[in-house]
Amino acid sequence: MSTAAVPATKRGVKAGKPVKSQRTKAEARLGWMLAGPAFVVMLAVTAYPIAQATFDSLFSYRLTTPDEREFIFLDNYLLLFSDWTFWRAFLVTLLITLVTVAIELVLGFALALVMHRALKALRGALRTAILVPYAIITVVSAFAWYFMFDINSGFVNNWFSWVPGISADLDWFGNTWTALSIIMAAEIWKTTPFIALLLLAGLAQVPGELVEAAKVDGATRSQQFTRVIIPNMKAAIMVAVLFRALDAFRIFDSVFVMTGGDQNTEVLALLAYRQSISRLEIGLGSAVSVVLFACVLLMCFIAVKLFKVDLASGTDQSQAKAKKGGAEQ
């Protein structure tokens, strides 16, 4: 996240002038000419399909019996909301989201602090290491975790057989809770670095003088942390949490690879996939997709309205500051 250090742009200085000249018009045209293609492409690859999905979700439509396609209005949704399979997938998705984000926040904070305070010589190594889980393919990470715990090929049962409850006979993927734990562990491992990096950027924004002042005032370490550092990082924390939560809610790859939804570990994205891609029930699958999309929108809406998360803080805020700075010059 950039800070007030961003120099005022030339345009920023002029933007305040209220003259609607030929030039502004030309600028607007140029702006849309440059930005337009990207904008159109983004809309074309998402807005059109989701509209189509919404339309399809009103039909009973199976790909292998195209002649029996039939308009059934909201029946697909009624079926979803009256079926425990859907609610179970919903709850599992919610659980995974809550647990992983909570743990990642704590773990991510620890990692961010480590990176923040680390000796210069170590920083490079730490950052490199932490980027590996971030950049690795999710499917690869899922296989890695799967092979580690798999009752047939994994070494975990062998290594940890001294822990009560773990023995050579423990089938991690044969039981809902153990399977979910591994899925969540893999997700946490893979995405904590992302949160840690965002928090690191947040930490860098906390004014050092404030911490020093607190120290002088005799604040303990934990007081410095809870009273000074965290309040000053609130924006960064909220953005990190929201992005991760939205991401976690769409979880698919790890579950697909590790259990395929068995042992009641099915998540919403997998449910949508199974209905439309495996069963070829386009109508029903589209309904699940639309519901999933609505959930994500709702989460976003709640965050923005209720918690006042400023998603645009990365750019617009600094722009505002830059503008302000420019105007004062």
Binding site: N152, D171, G174
Partner: peptide, 15 residues
């Protein structure tokens, strides 16, 4: 069928 019955496919049951 052993403790790993939930993951016994054709290959695992052969092993």
């Amino acid at each position: 069928a052993g403790p790993g019955v939930a993951s016994l496919d054709e290959n695992q049951s052969m092993l």
